[in-house]
Simulated scan of single mutants.
Amino acid sequence: MKSARKTGTKKSRGRPATGVGTQIGARWSPEVLEAIDDWRRNQTDLPGRPEAIRRLVELGLKAKK
C-alpha cells in the first residue's frame, strides 16, 4: 500500500516575494503625506504612494549633486 504523504518539496506558506532590496518602514505626518499626495496627483501616470516616495527621494539625491 502507498503512503498517504507525497514526497518532494514542501510548498512554502505566505505571500510570494515581490521584489529585491531592503524594506524600510517609516511614519509620516499628515502634512507630509498630503504634500506627497499633491505631488503625485500632478504626475501624468499617477504613481502610488510608495513609487512617488521613491521618485521624490531620487530627485532629492540628484539635486544634491
Rank of each mutant, 00 (worst) to 15 (best):
A35I: 03
R27C: 04
T7V: 15
Q23C: 11
T22V: 12
V32R: 06
Q43C: 03
L33H: 02
E34D: 13
R27P: 00
D45V: 10
R40T: 04
R15T: 06
R41C: 02
R13W: 04
S12W: 09
W28G: 07
A35H: 07
R40L: 04
P30W: 00
V20A: 15
A17W: 01
W39Q: 00
T7H: 12
L33Y: 01
T22E: 08
L46I: 14
S29T: 14
Q43A: 03
L46C: 13
E31L: 04
D38W: 03
R15D: 07
A17M: 11
T44L: 11
G14C: 02
L33S: 03
T18A: 09
T44Y: 11
N42G: 12
S29V: 11
A35E: 03
S12D: 13
G8S: 06
G21K: 07
T44W: 11
S12Q: 14
T7E: 09
A17I: 11
N42A: 14
I24P: 07
G19T: 05
W39L: 01
Q43W: 00
G25D: 04
S12C: 09
T18G: 10
Q23V: 15
T44M: 08
D45S: 08
I36V: 11
K10Y: 15
P30D: 07
W28D: 00
G19I: 05
K11T: 14
G21E: 05
G21S: 07
A17G: 11
P30K: 05
T22M: 13
L33R: 02
T9L: 08
G14R: 04
L46S: 09
